[in-house]
Design a protein around this nucleic acid. Sequence first.
DNA 1: CTTAATGTAACAAAATTTATTACATAAAAA
DNA 2: TTTTTATGTAATAAATTTTGTTACATTAAG
Lengths: 135, 135
Amino acid sequence: MNNLRFATAVHILVLLDKFRGEFITSEFIAGSINVNPVVVRRELKVLREAGLVLSKKGKEGGLSLLKDPTCIHMGELYKLVNQENTLGRMNHPNPACPIGKQMNSKLQSLFYQADNALILTLNKQSLADFAAQIV
Amino acid sequence: MNNLRFATAVHILVLLDKFRGEFITSEFIAGSINVNPVVVRRELKVLREAGLVLSKKGKEGGLSLLKDPTCIHMGELYKLVNQENTLGRMNHPNPACPIGKQMNSKLQSLFYQADNALILTLNKQSLADFAAQIV
DNA sequence: CTTAATGTAACAAAATTTATTACATAAAAA
DNA sequence: TTTTTATGTAATAAATTTTGTTACATTAAG
């Protein structure tokens, strides 16, 4: 997760929360985040497909928050934008090594536990909670 | 953390644990992990500087576990190999945007909380615990 | 019909990560 | 003392991932 996706997704959702009821453009969002609009649209696709966001095409179109921000939890969002293991990738150990060949199955369960614990922690905070910190 | 560093560090330490008392070479470790020996030595540098590992140069040299494996905790190890935020990087929002300009300080504290929770979870498991799963 | 928006593919550029080569240094053993 | 075998690390190359950009199809309001 050495990327900007979580930060970008949160930023998008906070803006949508602050402009609840209205439609704002990806251009506007991109201007606030300071990235290319296409990057924003790519992230919006994920949010839309997860049912968090509504998009309206054409003139007077734009984006709008679809789901209740008190029901959008940060862990859920993290899972959405990060499909990989939080603790990173795994090697492909030498199958001829009796120790190495057992490594990945044990790492996998450690990674799984860690991901779950992280998501549970993040789920304690909703988008509404987070956005409320921003005046 | 979209890299192999944590998996690599754990693998190294498990091998050192299994060969406790002996010196094993970075070449041997690399052979088990299936990576270049230089990658292993780079990681060993971090482990050595943190006092986990002892290295002996020259003929008959190699690596050996220095610290008691029941006192090496996974969270500590994770911190060692991952200096960045677990939840990723942050954008550089437009300072002219009243919402955007507040984003990073709030994200920073969320990131901090998440990192702490993750490390606490990982610290419940020691190297000894982890290695014991591997016969 | 014009205008202004999303949606996406295709490609380019940048940044990060891993692999490799080369060689200095150290220490044991012949 | 010389040879052998290790670590340590710099420098560079290659691969992969991430982000940026361009282009254009599609959609809908006015």
